[in-house]
Simulated assay, not measured.
Amino acid sequence: MNKQLFSQRKPGIIEDEKYTRYSVFIPILTVDGAKYLLFEKRSSNLKHQPDEICFPGGKLEQGETLLACAVRETMEELSVTAGQIEVLGPGDIYLSPFRLIIHSFIGVLKDYQDTFSTDEVGEIIKVPLDYLRNTTPESYESSLVTEPPKDFPYEWIPGGNQYTWRKGTRDILFYRYDTWVIWGMTAEILKSCLELMEQYHLFDSINTER
């Protein structure tokens, strides 16, 4: 490898192999002329995060692109076809402190008939886009603290067991609509989506479509 190739390389993520990648689709619906975002309530029978509210999506499979993952998971969970899914573009990437990377795609779900797979989804939730656009999420700051294992070699670091570890925080967001609470990672992705839609004037463009 020469210096020119090195200078043009795309930086990777340190410990990338320890992160799990997911991809989600953020569906925009038209119901009686009004625009909604669609969410799922996860089935109560699921092992991980039962009854949580989320966007359609799932874990990236070997050899699959991020976009293909979002489309495949949406088709499976909502029992729709690829032709019903129009991807407008990518959302931002969510990096979780728990070694999760979530990629999102914003788009339109056409001719949706309230179908879904009962294996994964307990209920479909439609929230008016105008409501979300004009809602500021509630935010609560949570601490992130380093807790080394019992056999940690304190003698190898300056200060030993009195070493001052850096502390961090993360905001946990909540959107509330009717009896529903959208929170955590989904709320973070939602907030970013709404900001991107504002920045790129997507609200105006989708409102001209029927």
Rank of each mutant, 00 (worst) to 15 (best):
F116Q: 05
E198H: 12
I101A: 02
I182N: 09
I106Q: 05
E123T: 01
I189N: 02
S143N: 07
E188K: 14
I157Q: 01
T115R: 13
T146V: 07
L129R: 11
V127M: 10
L196P: 01
I101M: 06
P148C: 00
M197E: 02
K167P: 00
M185F: 03
W183K: 15
G122H: 09
Y163Q: 06
I189D: 02
C193W: 02
M185G: 09
E141N: 05
E141S: 11
Y175Q: 07
W180F: 14
F174I: 11
V121K: 06
H103S: 07
Y154F: 15
L144Y: 01
L132H: 09
R170P: 01
F98V: 04
L196N: 12
Y177F: 11
A187N: 02
T115N: 13
R99E: 10
Q199N: 10
D130E: 15
I124S: 01
L109I: 10
I189Q: 06
S142I: 05
L173I: 07
Y112P: 08
I106K: 07
C193V: 05
E120H: 14
I182P: 10
T164C: 00
P158C: 03
T136M: 12
I125A: 11
T164M: 04
E123Q: 15
E120R: 12
T164F: 00
R133V: 05
P153G: 05
V145S: 00
E120L: 15
D151M: 02
